[in-house]
Design a protein around this nucleic acid. Structure first.
Lengths: 220, 220
DNA sequence: ATAAATTTGTTGCTGTGGCAACAGCTTTTT
DNA sequence: AAAAAGCTGTTGCCACAGCAACAAATTTAT
């Protein structure tokens, strides 16, 4: 079933199978009723407004989650590559009417898994325990990431968004923080216009609030 | 330990102890190393930048989560009453430097619990399984709520925020959706100015896009 | 080394929506 | 029933940030 080494690599990128040895992987996936499916480019993995029974783990390719705004424009939320787990929240809550759609932007391979198997069954295999722990950690992690994003997006001024973002990054001994984004990507993450971000960073430097230095920044 | 009926009421409001009978509640709480603590008004339950070892379940009183922006103003995120579970994400991720602080706004009682007990121990009691399932569901639910909020806050125009918000609410047979907020609270949820919201709702009605009717709205 | 592609800085224009202030309504309290 | 508190509609003002367009700089590809 899982002969492709690349697929195993992808699986290892997500938390869910942490602590499960390669030789147990097949058992774990079987326990989750795992099924591998090829998805051709532009096919929908999750339909807008649809129901979703299984979480997906992207083994290969590239998929994109998006939703529609008022004008029925597609707004891309995120593009994912191998190892990304999606749909957990919807599946676990038995959500109908998915508010997002997931579409393959190139030919992809997805492993569909039934997360409810983790806690639905009566037997208590050690694998089940590990999976439960990993799922909990994975969900909690997404929670933190989303919380941080909400905190940033709740700010009205661009400057406050920058401040909050910078404050959460760890400082090195000189008080600098390393920005793991290009400025373009940072603007997208902060939910602001790219040139406005550039302008504001310039202002902040003029005011002596900030030093920008090759992908590093320092406050005050 | 848990003689107060009000406390049990609060506990029942959160998912975590679903499916656990009242007579097993004490066992479940013991399993989680539960400890009840009184918190006086204005005391911090979680310090900004601090570490948090236990999740908290509010049994009585009122607490508020907030964070600080650039000017070290406190920005309130949410105010909670009995039954609210907080800090799970931070605890499970062993997060240091909490980005939020939690403060009692009136004299309160909090049950601190060690969520890691759910999956850390070797024994596999049925209670542990139930707790694991409930924690997973609870985290997944928060995930959906946060996702929805991110989707709304990512919109630049107030109108799009309104559209997205309204689209997720269930319609009644006449196509109306019931708004579970006052307009003031809705503005806060959407992250916009209250009077701007009022203005925009007026505009949309003028344009024939929306009908507002006593806490109900209808699109198109 | 040159070309191509991507990223960043800059600037003018413009509109949205934040803010403050007030008035008219509800709802709650006593 | 009166008073207090809270919610909603309205309006003027104006700053912030979105957008477009271009140039400069940097990175990646060939």
């Amino acid at each position: 079933m899982l002969t492709n080494q690349d697929y195993i690599c992808s699986i290892r990128k997500c938390y869910l199978f942490d602590g499960i040895k390669d030789e147990q992987l097949a058992d774990a996936i079987k326990l989750l009723n795992g099924r591998i499916k090829n998805v051709v480019k532009d096919d929908y993995v999750v339909q807008l407004g649809g129901t979703i029974q299984y979480a997906g783990l992207l083994l290969k390719g590239k998929i994109e989650s998006s939703f529609q705004n008022e004008n029925f424009d597609q707004i891309t939320m995120h593009t994912f590559t191998g190892g990304y787990l999606f749909g957990e929240g919807l599946v676990i809550n038995h959500a109908k009417n998915s508010p997002v759609q997931v579409r393959a932007v190139e030919d992809s391979v997805v492993l569909f898994i039934d997360l409810e198997m983790i806690y639905a069954a009566a037997d208590k295999s050690p694998i089940r325990n590990i999976l439960a722990r990993n799922l909990i950690k994975s969900l909690a992690k997404k929670n933190l990431i989303l919380n941080q994003k909400v905190r940033i997006l709740s700010q009205k001024s661009l400057r406050d968004r920058i401040f909050i973002y910078l404050r959460t990054l760890p400082k090195d001994k000189d008080g600098y923080v390393k920005i793991p984004f290009t400025q373009t990507a940072l603007a997208e993450y902060l939910g602001v216009n790219r040139s406005a971000l550039s302008r504001e960073l310039g202002r902040m430097q003029n005011e002596g609030l900030l030093i920008v230095n090759k992908g590093k920044m320092k406050l005050h």
